[in-house]
Protein backbone atom coordinates (compact mmCIF):
# COMPACT_ATOMS: atom_id res chain seq x y z
CA UNK A 1 0.00 0.00 0.00
CA UNK A 2 2.77 2.43 0.87
CA UNK A 3 4.14 4.40 -2.01
CA UNK A 4 7.16 6.63 -1.92
CA UNK A 5 5.33 9.75 -2.92
CA UNK A 6 3.13 9.59 0.16
CA UNK A 7 6.00 9.08 2.58
CA UNK A 8 7.88 12.08 1.26
CA UNK A 9 4.92 14.42 1.23
CA UNK A 10 3.98 13.72 4.84
CA UNK A 11 7.48 13.91 6.32
CA UNK A 12 7.21 17.58 7.30
CA UNK A 13 4.24 16.75 9.52
CA UNK A 14 6.46 14.50 11.58
CA UNK A 15 8.69 17.46 12.38
CA UNK A 16 5.70 19.70 13.07
CA UNK A 17 4.19 17.21 15.52
CA UNK A 18 7.38 16.73 17.50
CA UNK A 19 8.41 20.40 17.56
CA UNK A 20 6.61 21.54 20.75
CA UNK A 21 8.14 18.69 22.77
CA UNK A 22 11.67 19.30 21.55
CA UNK A 23 11.45 23.08 21.73
CA UNK A 24 10.30 22.97 25.35
CA UNK A 25 12.82 20.27 26.20
CA UNK A 26 15.68 22.31 24.76
CA UNK A 27 14.66 25.53 26.54
CA UNK A 28 13.66 24.14 29.93
CA UNK A 29 15.81 21.03 30.30
CA UNK A 30 18.70 20.80 27.87
CA UNK A 31 19.94 24.40 28.20
CA UNK A 32 19.60 24.26 32.02
CA UNK A 33 21.48 20.94 32.03
CA UNK A 34 24.31 22.36 29.94
CA UNK A 35 24.44 25.62 31.88
CA UNK A 36 24.57 23.65 35.13
CA UNK A 37 27.66 21.86 33.84
CA UNK A 38 29.02 25.17 32.52
CA UNK A 39 28.57 27.06 35.80
CA UNK A 40 30.40 24.31 37.66
CA UNK A 41 33.61 25.81 36.23
CA UNK A 42 32.80 29.34 37.38
CA UNK A 43 32.64 31.42 40.51
CA UNK A 44 29.00 32.44 40.42
CA UNK A 45 27.10 33.33 43.56
CA UNK A 46 24.96 35.91 45.29
CA UNK A 47 26.49 38.10 47.95
CA UNK A 48 23.97 40.31 49.65
CA UNK A 49 21.97 41.62 46.72
CA UNK A 50 24.82 41.47 44.22
CA UNK A 51 25.75 38.65 41.94
CA UNK A 52 29.44 37.77 41.77
CA UNK A 53 30.62 36.29 38.48
CA UNK A 54 30.42 34.20 36.52
CA UNK A 55 34.23 34.19 36.61
CA UNK A 56 36.07 31.21 35.20
CA UNK A 57 37.86 29.19 37.88
CA UNK A 58 38.51 25.90 36.09
CA UNK A 59 38.14 23.01 38.48
CA UNK A 60 38.16 25.35 41.50
CA UNK A 61 34.67 24.38 42.65
CA UNK A 62 35.48 20.68 42.40
CA UNK A 63 38.68 21.22 44.36
CA UNK A 64 36.65 22.95 47.09
CA UNK A 65 34.26 20.02 47.24
CA UNK A 66 37.12 17.58 47.73
CA UNK A 67 39.33 19.77 49.92
CA UNK A 68 38.67 18.59 53.44
CA UNK A 69 39.72 21.96 54.87
CA UNK A 70 37.66 24.18 52.57
CA UNK A 71 34.95 26.31 54.17
CA UNK A 72 32.21 24.10 52.82
CA UNK A 73 33.69 20.89 54.16
CA UNK A 74 35.07 22.09 57.48
CA UNK A 75 36.97 18.97 58.43
CA UNK A 76 34.90 16.18 56.90
CA UNK A 77 34.18 15.45 53.26
CA UNK A 78 30.52 16.42 52.97
CA UNK A 79 30.02 14.70 49.64
CA UNK A 80 31.02 11.35 51.16
CA UNK A 81 28.86 11.91 54.24
CA UNK A 82 25.77 12.78 52.22
CA UNK A 83 26.29 10.02 49.67
CA UNK A 84 26.60 7.61 52.58
CA UNK A 85 23.45 8.95 54.29
CA UNK A 86 21.50 8.72 51.05
CA UNK A 87 22.68 5.20 50.28
CA UNK A 88 21.99 3.91 53.80
CA UNK A 89 18.42 5.19 53.69
CA UNK A 90 17.95 3.86 50.16
CA UNK A 91 19.21 0.37 51.02
CA UNK A 92 17.14 0.23 54.22
CA UNK A 93 14.02 0.92 52.17
CA UNK A 94 14.88 -0.87 48.94
CA UNK A 95 15.86 -4.29 50.33
CA UNK A 96 12.56 -4.99 52.12
CA UNK A 97 10.80 -3.40 49.16
CA UNK A 98 12.30 -5.91 46.73
CA UNK A 99 11.64 -8.86 49.01
CA UNK A 100 8.01 -7.88 49.61
CA UNK A 101 7.44 -7.05 45.95
CA UNK A 102 8.94 -10.27 44.67
CA UNK A 103 6.90 -12.30 47.11
CA UNK A 104 3.71 -10.43 46.20
CA UNK A 105 4.39 -10.70 42.48
CA UNK A 106 4.86 -14.48 42.78
CA UNK A 107 1.71 -14.82 44.88
CA UNK A 108 -0.38 -12.79 42.43
CA UNK A 109 0.84 -14.61 39.34
CA UNK A 110 0.82 -18.14 40.74
CA UNK A 111 -1.36 -20.49 38.71
CA UNK A 112 -1.36 -22.88 41.64
CA UNK A 113 -2.58 -20.46 44.31
CA UNK A 114 -5.20 -18.69 42.19
CA UNK A 115 -5.57 -15.80 44.65
CA UNK A 116 -8.98 -14.16 44.77
CA UNK A 117 -9.56 -10.42 45.23
CA UNK A 118 -6.39 -9.56 43.32
CA UNK A 119 -7.72 -6.26 42.04
CA UNK A 120 -8.52 -5.09 45.57
CA UNK A 121 -5.08 -5.99 46.91
CA UNK A 122 -3.24 -4.44 43.97
CA UNK A 123 -5.29 -1.25 44.23
CA UNK A 124 -4.53 -0.95 47.93
CA UNK A 125 -0.79 -1.57 47.74
CA UNK A 126 -0.35 0.84 44.85
CA UNK A 127 -2.20 3.69 46.58
CA UNK A 128 0.64 4.99 48.81
CA UNK A 129 2.61 5.73 45.64
CA UNK A 130 0.22 8.54 44.70
CA UNK A 131 0.31 10.22 48.08
CA UNK A 132 2.27 13.43 48.45
CA UNK A 133 5.66 12.51 49.91
CA UNK A 134 5.70 15.75 51.89
CA UNK A 135 2.36 14.87 53.51
CA UNK A 136 3.41 11.31 54.19
CA UNK A 137 6.50 12.60 55.96
CA UNK A 138 4.45 15.14 57.92
CA UNK A 139 2.05 12.38 58.97
CA UNK A 140 4.92 10.22 60.21
CA UNK A 141 6.37 13.23 61.99
CA UNK A 142 3.09 13.58 63.91
CA UNK A 143 2.70 9.83 64.55
CA UNK A 144 6.27 9.43 65.82
CA UNK A 145 6.67 12.67 67.74
CA UNK A 146 7.58 12.15 71.39
CA UNK A 147 3.96 12.75 72.43
CA UNK A 148 2.53 11.05 69.33
CA UNK A 149 0.26 8.02 69.01
CA UNK A 150 3.12 5.51 68.77
CA UNK A 151 4.54 6.50 72.14
CA UNK A 152 1.01 6.70 73.57
CA UNK A 153 0.33 3.11 72.57
CA UNK A 154 3.64 1.93 74.05
CA UNK A 155 2.86 3.86 77.24
CA UNK A 156 -0.55 2.30 77.62
CA UNK A 157 0.82 -1.20 77.01
CA UNK A 158 3.72 -0.92 79.46
CA UNK A 159 1.84 1.24 81.94
CA UNK A 160 4.77 3.64 82.20
CA UNK A 161 5.11 6.95 80.46
CA UNK A 162 7.15 6.44 77.31
CA UNK A 163 8.45 9.53 75.52
CA UNK A 164 11.10 8.30 73.12
CA UNK A 165 12.17 10.97 70.63
CA UNK A 166 12.52 8.97 67.41
CA UNK A 167 13.64 11.92 65.33
CA UNK A 168 16.50 12.67 67.69
CA UNK A 169 18.01 9.24 67.07
CA UNK A 170 20.03 8.75 63.89
CA UNK A 171 19.03 5.12 63.44
CA UNK A 172 15.35 5.64 64.18
CA UNK A 173 15.11 8.71 61.93
CA UNK A 174 16.84 6.93 59.04
CA UNK A 175 14.63 3.91 59.54
CA UNK A 176 11.54 6.11 59.41
CA UNK A 177 12.68 7.74 56.15
CA UNK A 178 13.32 4.26 54.73
CA UNK A 179 9.92 3.03 55.96
CA UNK A 180 8.09 5.84 54.17
CA UNK A 181 10.01 5.15 50.96
CA UNK A 182 9.29 1.45 51.32
CA UNK A 183 5.56 2.05 51.82
CA UNK A 184 5.41 4.43 48.88
CA UNK A 185 7.19 2.18 46.41
CA UNK A 186 6.59 -1.52 47.10
CA UNK A 187 3.25 -1.51 45.25
CA UNK A 188 4.81 0.00 42.17
CA UNK A 189 7.66 -2.52 42.21
CA UNK A 190 5.20 -5.39 42.66
CA UNK A 191 3.28 -4.41 39.55
CA UNK A 192 6.46 -4.13 37.47
CA UNK A 193 7.73 -7.53 38.64
CA UNK A 194 4.30 -9.07 37.98
CA UNK A 195 4.39 -7.80 34.42
CA UNK A 196 7.84 -9.36 34.15
CA UNK A 197 6.69 -12.75 35.45
CA UNK A 198 3.65 -12.79 33.17
CA UNK A 199 5.97 -12.11 30.25
CA UNK A 200 7.83 -15.38 30.90
CA UNK A 201 6.90 -18.17 28.54
CA UNK A 202 4.39 -20.29 30.48
CA UNK A 203 5.58 -23.50 28.87
CA UNK A 204 8.84 -23.18 30.81
CA UNK A 205 6.95 -23.48 34.09
CA UNK A 206 5.05 -26.48 32.74
CA UNK A 207 8.26 -28.12 31.55
CA UNK A 208 9.83 -27.61 34.97
CA UNK A 209 6.75 -29.11 36.65
CA UNK A 210 6.81 -32.15 34.37
CA UNK A 211 10.50 -32.60 35.17
CA UNK A 212 9.45 -32.82 38.81
CA UNK A 213 10.71 -29.46 40.06
CA UNK A 214 9.14 -28.24 43.30
CA UNK A 215 7.97 -24.65 43.88
CA UNK A 216 11.29 -23.50 45.32
CA UNK A 217 13.24 -24.99 42.44
CA UNK A 218 10.89 -23.38 39.93
CA UNK A 219 11.28 -20.05 41.70
CA UNK A 220 15.06 -20.07 41.94
CA UNK A 221 15.91 -21.88 38.68
CA UNK A 222 13.23 -20.54 36.34
CA UNK A 223 11.50 -17.43 37.64
CA UNK A 224 14.46 -15.54 39.10
CA UNK A 225 16.91 -16.00 36.19
CA UNK A 226 14.30 -15.12 33.59
CA UNK A 227 13.14 -12.15 35.62
CA UNK A 228 16.66 -10.74 35.85
CA UNK A 229 16.32 -8.10 33.11
CA UNK A 230 13.23 -6.63 34.79
CA UNK A 231 14.88 -6.82 38.21
CA UNK A 232 17.90 -4.95 36.87
CA UNK A 233 15.56 -2.31 35.46
CA UNK A 234 13.67 -2.03 38.75
CA UNK A 235 16.87 -1.86 40.82
CA UNK A 236 18.42 0.84 38.66
CA UNK A 237 15.32 3.04 38.53
CA UNK A 238 14.96 2.61 42.29
CA UNK A 239 18.59 3.61 42.78
CA UNK A 240 18.26 6.66 40.55
CA UNK A 241 15.12 7.64 42.47
CA UNK A 242 16.87 6.93 45.79
CA UNK A 243 19.76 9.23 44.95
CA UNK A 244 17.24 12.02 44.31
CA UNK A 245 15.74 11.50 47.77
CA UNK A 246 14.59 14.89 49.02
CA UNK A 247 10.97 15.44 50.10
CA UNK A 248 10.73 12.74 52.76
CA UNK A 249 13.91 13.42 54.76
CA UNK A 250 13.55 17.18 54.24
CA UNK A 251 10.07 17.31 55.79
CA UNK A 252 10.36 14.45 58.29
CA UNK A 253 13.66 15.57 59.79
CA UNK A 254 13.33 19.26 58.90
CA UNK A 255 16.34 19.27 56.60
CA UNK A 256 18.43 16.36 57.79
CA UNK A 257 18.40 16.35 61.61
CA UNK A 258 19.68 14.77 63.86
CA UNK A 259 23.13 16.27 63.31
CA UNK A 260 22.77 16.05 59.54
CA UNK A 261 22.60 12.26 59.62
CA UNK A 262 19.49 12.23 57.43
CA UNK A 263 20.77 14.94 55.10
CA UNK A 264 20.84 13.63 51.54
CA UNK A 265 22.80 14.76 48.48
CA UNK A 266 19.80 16.65 47.12
CA UNK A 267 19.00 18.37 50.44
CA UNK A 268 22.61 19.52 50.42
CA UNK A 269 22.36 20.66 46.80
CA UNK A 270 19.04 22.39 47.49
CA UNK A 271 20.69 24.47 50.20
CA UNK A 272 23.16 25.86 47.68
CA UNK A 273 20.56 26.62 45.00
CA UNK A 274 17.70 28.01 47.08
CA UNK A 275 19.56 28.96 50.24
CA UNK A 276 23.00 30.46 49.70
CA UNK A 277 22.52 30.81 45.93
CA UNK A 278 25.98 29.61 44.99
CA UNK A 279 25.44 28.32 41.46
CA UNK A 280 29.11 27.51 40.90
CA UNK A 281 29.35 25.10 43.83
CA UNK A 282 25.81 23.80 43.23
CA UNK A 283 26.72 23.18 39.58
CA UNK A 284 29.77 21.15 40.59
CA UNK A 285 27.62 19.18 43.05
CA UNK A 286 25.06 18.45 40.34
CA UNK A 287 27.77 17.16 38.01
CA UNK A 288 29.08 14.91 40.77
CA UNK A 289 25.58 13.62 41.58
CA UNK A 290 25.16 12.95 37.86
CA UNK A 291 28.32 10.85 37.77
CA UNK A 292 27.63 9.12 41.10
CA UNK A 293 24.23 8.13 39.68
CA UNK A 294 25.82 6.84 36.51
CA UNK A 295 28.55 4.86 38.27
CA UNK A 296 26.26 3.28 40.85
CA UNK A 297 23.74 2.35 38.16
CA UNK A 298 26.54 0.67 36.23
CA UNK A 299 27.60 -1.26 39.34
CA UNK A 300 24.04 -2.45 39.97
CA UNK A 301 23.79 -3.46 36.32
CA UNK A 302 27.07 -5.43 36.44
CA UNK A 303 26.30 -7.15 39.73
CA UNK A 304 22.82 -8.27 38.76
CA UNK A 305 23.70 -9.15 35.20
CA UNK A 306 26.81 -11.19 35.96
CA UNK A 307 25.19 -14.60 36.40
CA UNK A 308 21.99 -14.25 34.45
CA UNK A 309 23.26 -15.19 30.99
CA UNK A 310 23.21 -18.96 31.15
CA UNK A 311 19.50 -19.73 31.55
CA UNK A 312 18.54 -17.17 28.92
CA UNK A 313 20.36 -19.10 26.23
CA UNK A 314 18.19 -22.11 26.87
CA UNK A 315 15.19 -20.20 25.60
CA UNK A 316 16.83 -20.26 22.18
Amino acid sequence: MKNKHKLVSYAKWGYIFITPFFLVYIIFSLIPLLSTFYYSFFDYYQQGLDWIGPNFVGFGNYVKLFDINSTLNNGSLKILTYTKNTMIMWVLGAVPQFIFSLLLAVIFTSERLRIKGQRFFKTVIYMPNLIMAASFAMLFFALFSNVGPVNQVISSITGEEFKYDYLASTNAARLLVATINFLMWFGNTTILLMAGIMGIDQSLFEAAAIDGANSWQVFFKVTIPLLMPIMVYVAITSLIGGLQMFDVPQILTNGGAPAGDCETLIIWLNGYIGGSKNYGIAGAMSVLVFFITGILSLIVYKVLNSDSDKPKKKRG
Binding site: I18, F21, F22, Y25, I27, F28, S29, I31, P32, L33, L34, S35, T36, Y38, Y39, I240, G241, L243, Q244, F246, I266, L269, N270, I273, G274, Y279, A282, G283, S286, V289, F290, T293
Partner: peptide, 23 residues
Protein backbone atom coordinates in the same frame (compact mmCIF):
# COMPACT_ATOMS: atom_id res chain seq x y z
CA UNK B 1 14.20 11.68 18.01
CA UNK B 2 12.96 8.44 19.60
CA UNK B 3 16.39 7.37 20.88
CA UNK B 4 17.00 10.87 22.22
CA UNK B 5 13.82 10.84 24.29
CA UNK B 6 14.62 7.34 25.62
CA UNK B 7 18.04 8.55 26.79
CA UNK B 8 16.82 11.72 28.49
CA UNK B 9 14.10 9.76 30.28
CA UNK B 10 16.74 8.51 32.70
CA UNK B 11 18.13 11.96 33.61
CA UNK B 12 16.61 13.21 36.87
CA UNK B 13 15.30 16.79 36.91
CA UNK B 14 17.27 17.67 40.03
CA UNK B 15 20.52 17.44 38.09
CA UNK B 16 19.67 20.46 35.93
CA UNK B 17 18.02 22.45 38.75
CA UNK B 18 20.84 25.02 38.94
CA UNK B 19 20.50 26.00 35.28
CA UNK B 20 16.72 25.86 35.50
CA UNK B 21 16.49 28.18 38.51
CA UNK B 22 19.05 30.52 36.92
CA UNK B 23 16.94 30.66 33.74
Amino acid sequence: AFTFIMVIMMIPTQISAVGFVDL
